[in-house]
């Protein structure tokens, strides 16, 4: 039995007591009275949540949490980060150890039965990264080469199937660790690596000019924060803070963070008729 299933069982068992306890007053009032936001996140995944060289937490998830804190206290630094493994994301929300979890959580309907998911702040997907001087120009060239190309991918039950969805004939080499797939690419043992689009974007930001994006994304998944079920006011507040970060007054903060971690300039939302209804 894996950690995940143990934790899922715990989470379900504790769901009832936790939801009934928070029914009286909103988490929003509790957080405001406390004076700082308690956010569950990780510390081992760049560019989402990881330690800087000065041992400070940084990343896109961290910036999202700070946007929520700024909405609450007009001060993005009034956040206490609680470190947690990915497996602990849902239990820590359900048991009230944290006010909110922002930790690249993929939204699934099954998870939404245990926690309330906020509006999305990023759409993740798989992508292909090649060396800048690769003989293959992009995704189409790799696909045209058929079984002549080798793709390095992080070992996973679904890894081979994932690559096959994009490149049905390619050879798939699986590696144990993220750094090993990059080494395979550098050593020429693989023609491209298949990994998260965000990882590719972060790699391109860090080592400009050495690599290129294959220009094709697939296998979409939505990243959202999570809060405890049964507190609509708190969920609404977080949704509002995130929504205004992507479309309203905090857009510049969101866009600066997006640029910093993914190297992409976002176009400001169109002024006039709200983009949401177009």
């Amino acid at each position: 039995m894996g950690t995940k299933s143990i934790l899922a069982g715990l989470a379900l068992a504790l769901l009832f007591s936790a939801t009934s306890a928070s029914a009286q007053t909103s988490k929003l009032d509790e957080v405001l009275a406390r004076g700082h936001l308690v956010v569950g996140t990780g510390s081992t995944n760049a560019p989402w949540h990881f330690k800087s060289e000065t041992d400070q937490l940084q990343g896109f998830d961290i910036d999202i949490a700070k946007i929520v804190a700024k909405g609450l206290f007009d001060d993005p630094e009034k956040v206490e980060f609680v470190l947690q493994a990915s497996d602990a994301r849902i239990p820590n929300v359900v048991t009230g150890k944290v006010d909110i979890t922002c930790q690249f959580m993929t939204v699934t309907a099954a998870r939404a039965q245990q926690i309330a998911v906020t509006i999305p702040y990023y759409r993740e997907g798989a992508g292909l990264m090649l060396k800048a001087d690769s003989s293959y120009a992009d995704y189409d060239a790799l696909k045209a080469a058929g079984s002549g190309v080798t793709i390095a991918v992080l070992q996973n039950v679904y890894a081979e199937e994932l690559v096959r969805q994009a490149l049905p004939e390619a050879n798939v080499d699986q590696y144990d660790a993220q750094d090993l797939i990059y080494q395979a690419l550098n050593a020429g043992r693989a023609d491209a690596v298949a990994t998260d689009q965000s990882s590719i974007a972060w790699f391109l930001v860090q080592q400009p000019g050495q690599y290129k994006d294959g220009g094709y994304g697939w296998s979409p998944q939505t990243y959202s924060c999570a809060v405890a079920r049964g507190d609509q006011e708190w969920l609404n507040f977080v949704n509002t803070a995130l929504h205004e970060a992507m479309t309203g007054v905090e857009f510049n903060t969101y866009a600066a963070s997006f640029k910093k971690w993914f190297g992409v300039d976002l176009a400001p939302p169109k002024i006039g008729f709200p983009v949401e209804f177009q």
């Binding site: 330690k51 947690q84 750094d179 090993l180």
Partner: peptide
Amino acid sequence: LSIIGVAELLLATQEVIARTFMSL
């Protein structure tokens, strides 16, 4: 204890690996 977020040696090591990609 790294699972529940105690910053012991293994978690500290993983944090370094996350930034440097030097796992081995």
